[in-house]
Amino acid sequence: MDLAPPIRFELRRGAVTAIPLAIAVGLFGVSFGVLSASTGGMGALPAIVMSATTFAGSAQFAAASVLAGGGGPVTAILAALLLNARYLPIGVSVARFMLGGRVARFVQSQLVVDESWAIASRGGGEFDPHRLVGAGVVLWCAWVAGTVIGVLGGEALGDPAALGLDAAFPALFLALLVPQLGGRRARAAAALGAGIAVVLVPFTPAGVPIIAAAGAAVIGLVRR
């Protein structure tokens, strides 16, 4: 591919920025693989195919946990799709910055995950499509590779919670949040979003609190 220098720069910038997150995502993928390959899980090959096609960590984890906890397939599917419903507004937010025809847009849209979306954000609702692709490809590779390692490596790796891995996720989301907090409205939306989510956790199935938190963005309509 012959790419103009600024495009190559943004692709690389997206990829490089994604590396620390990709390490965490890869480790998360390992735990998804371990969970899926264990007794009562969905099995090794389905887990790998799911990581490659669905490419949405929290939703896959939700489906795998429902299955491992003895839940039925319909509950597992609903839990996963509910968690992924946030990609509808997220997809709308990046739509007008994506390049090319319908097929190219479809491919780019599949590389959107929370982390690549945050990396592609230039603030004020603007997004860089090349940074999105650079970050998305790195994160996809890490997620699939992590899943494969988890499926094959299994029990040898131990409990992710004992390594503090579960604590790395809120920290990484916080690191993504901080650059988004320019301006009073953004800070108000963040506080409101977190509040909505926390209040709903005890009363709604996993995934709903996150979707509901998107409602905090409506304060963008309030006149100052």
């Binding site: 954000s121 609702g125 979003g193 199935p205 996150i210 963005a217």
Partner: peptide, 30 residues
Amino acid sequence: AQVQRVVALLAPALLAALVATAALASGQQL
């Protein structure tokens, strides 16, 4: 423009919600 103003606030709202739930939620319990 109005929709755009809302979309611009989706990132802080959703990321803050992800921080809060990833730190405090365990299944349906806080």
